[in-house]
Design a protein around this nucleic acid. Structure first.
Lengths: 338, 338
DNA sequence: CGATGGAAGTTATACGTAAAACGTGAGGGT
DNA sequence: ACCCTCACGTTTTACGTATAACTTCCATCG
């Protein structure tokens, strides 16, 4: 009988089943073919069930030198998007017997200088969003296998990268708006220094710039409805001809832009077309519904996890960006004025 | 010198510093007052720094018999709300040297029967949303300290509970609408069986029922914009006098109700007043902005974590529901018709 | 018939840490 | 001269698991 209060160990199970601790480990670890008889194995399983035995993971991790736990670093969890990334990553991880631990970066979680302090679990590897760049130096200090999400393939110092094809999404937005006849663009950009936002700016400038008689102005805002509201409001009421198309770096910015436009008495899409990027629930809650680029956050998370598993396996992760899709809704139309 | 590739251990540090492993443990564990001289301690710290030593958490957890890791079980992470709960819980946890591991319940994460399979880290305790009820039986199997979020204080079998004062929020909504003159109510309810939604229904019926000449109809919908759209559409176009106030169990349902109302040509708030509950970013993105009950998700998470820490400490968690606040915006107004 | 080998286990050990138990020499009090 | 205490360590052990190495028994084979 086990000592009343503490959790039963494999030794307790062994004693009940009348075998050695090693036999318990073999049976429960499914390594017993040709080592233990079926009848004995069943006896062990029964004893384990009766005692409610659960292996001590700390001991297992220590013994095996690995934890089957992975860290996901995200800029903040307060957005649907990274929640989706986590969900996808955790799903794939579970399929492979892995767990995922989150590290929402400092601004969300307070002054935790050490990403690993919050994850008491030891780690086998790390998946990190490039938006959480501030945490990266700490991460690189450890020599853990690393997969970067939406990061510059050149600048990641050999870490594997998994990227959404944001450039293609922006290209689709630009072509859509150009085809509608828009010529004066306003780019409502996120004020976070990150490769994924640089790509948006670069691609938009390239596509729009390839057509004669076009212009792109840029204004930056923090990623929040309020921040976008003030920035877009200022930009839309600036002197000179008003832009007819407002390309936003993400859906939240677009939501702010809606409000700014309304306050100025502008109709969407008649007076100004607006586009977003993400396709959050927000996008269809807006009126008119938002034309935006759909990013499959869960798929993104799944790819990230698969890439990390490949690295851990000594394999080379698959190449190739994850496709994205323009979703045309009611917020874009041909410009009305000249 | 340590064997090239593997991580340095406390023994490696000891060798470099010219002391025993025990001394390293004492110094780095901050238990050395009067046991090790300041100069030796400094030498140990320096060696640790040089080697980039990080304690093996699996070994520490095994030795100490606790992990300083806690599991947060949520129905899904794809909502701002539970992301906020996590953020708050993780912040408090970090202040106490704890980590938080997430278990988004099965529907989100696939067929993971065992909540602990996804969290390879061993656990000291569990915080669980009552919405993830399906995972609860598995959790109760283990005798881990448990804190329930928004759960029936009577029915939780002795587990500590931390609740938002939802009843008060619904009361405020009801009084607000009654004061505006509304008499015919439609309750757009979530179709999830959970105490937190039962409270909404009970309190609304109680408050509205206390006034003569009032009525409350109820229709249920899954918590999504699309689900609410169809349910609310059907209810609003049902025969008989149309409700003038639509009380929704949360903001997403309210967003669906907006669309349903618009499709029927109803103006908000002139033809129908709508209220939500949560105060997500969504609420201010809608037009008109949504009158709703603000729940402080992060504070909720913080309280949950503090309660668990109290339980782990053998203390009794503080009592008392977390206050909520009605935020009146543009979606509610006096009814226009008779 | 002795050797071979497979089945069915057991024994022993290592993983890295924390901390209890155990020196050890110097200084101080009586 | 003796014991005590204190400062400064070291030696040893236990945590629970996985697995390599070893034992034992029995059947088969050349």
């Amino acid at each position: 009988m086990a000592r009343g209060s503490t959790r039963p160990t494999s030794r307790d199970v062994a004693q009940v089943a009348g075998v050695s601790q090693a036999a318990v480990s073999l049976v429960l670890g499914d390594k017993w073919r040709g080592r233990v008889s079926e009848t004995t194995a069943e006896r062990v399983r029964e004893a384990a069930r009766d005692l409610g035995y659960r292996p001590n993971l700390a001991a297992r991790n220590l013994r095996l030198g690995r934890t089957r736990t992975v860290l996901l670093v995200v800029p903040a969890l307060t957005t649907e998007f990274f929640a989706g990334v986590y969900t996808g990553a955790a799903r794939v991880a579970a399929e492979h017997g892995f767990g995922v631990v989150l590290y929402p970066s400092p601004e969300g979680i307070g002054p935790a200088r050490d990403p690993f302090a919050s994850a008491q679990a030891a780690l086998d590897g790390v998946i990190a969003s490039s938006m959480a760049a501030d945490a990266l130096t700490a991460i690189r200090g450890d020599q853990l296998p690393l997969v970067m999400l939406d990061s510059d393939p050149e600048g990641s110092l050999g870490a594997a990268t998994v990227n959404l094809d944001i450039a293609d999404g922006v290209r689709q937005v630009a072509e859509h708006l150009l085809a509608l006849g828009h010529r004066r663009f306003l780019h409502l950009a996120a004020d976070i220094p990150s490769w994924t936002f640089e790509v948006r700016a670069r691609e938009l400038a390239a596509r729009v710039g390839s057509v004669a008689g076009t212009s792109v102005r840029t204004t930056r805002a923090p990623i929040s409805i309020e921040g976008a509201l003030t920035a877009a409001g200022a930009a839309l009421s600036a002197p000179g001809p008003r832009p007819t198309a407002l390309v936003c770096d993400d859906d939240k910015l677009a939501a702010g832009a809606y409000k700014a436009a309304r306050r100025l008495g502008l109709r969407i899409p008649e007076d100004v077309s607006i586009t977003g990027l993400d396709d959050l629930a927000l996008a269809t809650a807006l009126d008119p519904e938002l034309t935006t680029v759909r990013l499959d956050a869960e798929l993104f998370g799944e790819h990230g996890m698969r890439a990390l598993l490949a690295v851990l396996d000594g394999r080379v992760p698959e190449e190739g960006d994850i496709p994205v899709e323009l979703v045309v809704r009611g917020s874009t139309a041909p410009p009305s004025g000249p």
